[in-house]
């Protein structure tokens, strides 16, 4: 088995902030907008270095999406920053008409996604955003797994022409992917070779999948682990190739099982290679207050849950 070393826990939102800072230094067309959450989105350094390229919108997310769409007319590359809940559900029609349908080059950058936002509770813990965004024609949907990958993804989406939804989170989590990696949109990353079961994970669940694979290995089960950082466009070939070998799959995500990565994979497999699948995801429910670790345990989104799902899906082969 390959071993992955945690270089020290870091939050993915800080990876976004670092990527944005780098873009501020290298790409004069990049501009940033925020709806009163500069500190939470780690945008301070970009603003300090590029005050003329930053737009404080206030608590007015609908206006932020429209202003971002308008800034593209004239060649700017706007990065909007707010929580995932306010980046999607609150402004769905603005994104749909002014950004997606109008094919504007806006990067919707969404922090505090999912249960790991923690104590603020269900009002802020969106578990539906991947579904909302992937349904929009032309929208690219990315959910990187750690600090380094979020930084790389932030820089990569500036080079991509078209609307992008970039999802990341609040807590400090394992940072284990290479520093200064090149991020290729739509290209799944093969993290662990295995023969008995495929684990396809996205976001914070990728590290949990690697931990699960270690436990499974100790129990004599060989798990293949794939990091699906790009949910749309989905790397169908990587998934089909893997299940051709393992004959079963577990998908893992910090999202509702309705509308998430698991459903996207189920669609691909049902068309091309029907395969037993188990879903590690929330079960059509809202979250609640608690620490991230407590919530991930209660709602079944950690390494233990992935191990159990793998054991179950192997029996269905």
């Amino acid at each position: 088995m390959k071993t992955y070393e945690n270089q020290g826990n870091k939050d993915t939102r800080s990876g976004f902030g670092a990527g944005l800072t780098e873009l501020g230094r290298t790409n004069p067309n990049v501009v940033a907008l925020c709806a009163d959450l500069i500190g939470s989105l780690k945008m301070d350094q970009f603003i300090e270095e590029n005050p003329e390229r930053f737009f404080q919108i206030g608590i007015a997310e609908a206006n932020m999406m429209g202003v971002a769409a308008g800034l593209t007319i004239g060649g700017k590359i706007p990065f909007t920053g707010t929580f995932a809940n306010f980046s999607t559900g609150r402004v769905y029609d603005q994104i749909r008409q002014s950004i997606a349908y109008s094919n504007k080059n806006v990067k919707i950058c969404a922090s505090h996604a999912g249960l790991t936002l923690g104590e603020d509770g269900a009002t802020h813990q969106i578990l539906e955003d991947i579904g909302l965004m992937k349904m929009l024609p032309g929208m690219t949907v990315i959910n990187p797994c750690d600090y380094n990958q979020t930084k790389a993804a932030t820089m990569a989406i500036a080079e991509h022409e078209g609307p992008v939804y970039l999802r990341f989170g609040r807590p400090k989590v394992a940072n284990f992917t290479p520093e200064n990696q090149k991020f290729e949109i739509g290209k799944a990353l093969h993290l662990q070779d295995g023969t008995d079961v495929t684990i396809a994970a996205t976001g914070h669940l990728v590290w949990e999948a690697l931990e699960a694979a270690k436990t499974l290995n100790e129990n004599g089960i060989s798990a293949e682990v794939i990091n699906i950082h790009t949910i749309k466009p989905l790397d169908a070939k990587a998934i089909i190739d893997s299940v051709s070998k393992t004959k079963c799959i577990v998908t893992a995500e910090e999202h509702n099982h309705l509308g998430g990565l698991g459903e996207s994979i189920a669609r691909v497999l049902s068309q091309h290679k029907p395969t037993p699948q188990e879903f590690v995801a929330t079960n059509d429910t809202f979250g609640e207050s608690g620490t991230p670790a407590q919530l991930m345990e209660k709602y079944g989104l950690n390494a233990n849950a992935i191990v159990k799902a793998c054991e179950n899906v192997i029996k269905r082969k």
Partner: peptide
């Protein structure tokens, strides 16, 4: 045409973004 419109209330935000792009340029 530079933006889709029809769902009401969105055009002023877009126009303001374009106005700020003009200033930056």
């Amino acid at each position: 045409i530079r933006i889709a419109s029809g769902s009401l209330g969105q055009g002023m935000s877009v126009a303001l973004g374009a106005a700020q792009a003009k200033k930056l340029n």
